[in-house]
Simulated scan of single mutants.
Amino acid sequence: MSARHHARGGVVIAVLDQMDAWEINLVLNLRLWCEGPTGRRAAWTDYANAVPYGDAERAWHDFERLVERVITTASRPLVRHQVTCNCVGSDEYIFLHLVRTASDGYLNDAALIATLLSGPAHAEHIALMAGEVGSALRHAHCKSNSISPVATAELVRLH
């Protein structure tokens, strides 16, 4: 990845410790998922522990479909920070903002936000998926304040 792409998606615009718990969970699970099989297992474990048993598989499947669609249709590689980093980069924050906006019911706005990560041909579908993911995470966090994303020491990404 060129330095230009690095700067475009990795610029720090927020910090995790000033976000809602479900938002932290979303960003950290995005980071874990992008790290490959080990990270995906850790993120799945988080979903399995956070979401009621019958809903965990569906919520995880929705999350995976959303991330896969965003990554495979992105105009450039998404930039993210290391799982243990408190910083939130611009690509990560756009993903979070997309999910938040869609799950708040503003699907037209969410589709516009999706175009920052993906092409316009995929924006509406991504917005719909983002709404499902956000609703599931918010619902899980409303039921339990003890949810905490899984951290792993073997991940390497931006600071």
Rank of each mutant, 00 (worst) to 15 (best):
A3P: 02
H5F: 11
H5L: 14
A7E: 11
A7R: 13
R8E: 14
G9V: 07
G10H: 05
V12M: 09
V12G: 05
Q18D: 13
D20N: 11
A21V: 06
W22D: 09
E23I: 01
E23M: 11
N29Q: 12
N29E: 06
R31N: 10
L32V: 14
G36L: 15
T38S: 15
T38E: 15
R40G: 14
A42W: 10
A42K: 10
W44L: 12
W44Y: 12
T45E: 13
D46L: 00
Y47C: 04
A50R: 00
V51L: 03
D55C: 01
E57N: 13
R58K: 11
R58E: 13
W60P: 05
W60H: 08
F63S: 02
L66A: 03
V67E: 03
E68F: 09
R69W: 07
R69E: 12
V70D: 02
I71L: 12
I71D: 04
A74H: 09
P77C: 05
R80Y: 10
R80T: 06
H81N: 06
C87E: 04
S90G: 03
D91R: 01
Y93I: 01
Y93W: 08
Y93H: 10
H97V: 01
H97C: 01
R100Y: 01
R100W: 07
S103I: 07
S103N: 12
G105D: 08
Y106G: 00
L107S: 03
D109C: 03
D109S: 06
L112C: 06
T115P: 00
L116P: 00
L116K: 03
L117E: 01
L117R: 00
P120K: 06
A123T: 07
E124I: 07
M129H: 11
E132V: 08
V133N: 02
G134F: 01
A140D: 09
H141R: 07
K143P: 00
I147T: 04
S148G: 06
P149H: 08
A151V: 14
T152L: 12
A153E: 13
L155E: 14
V156I: 15
H159L: 13
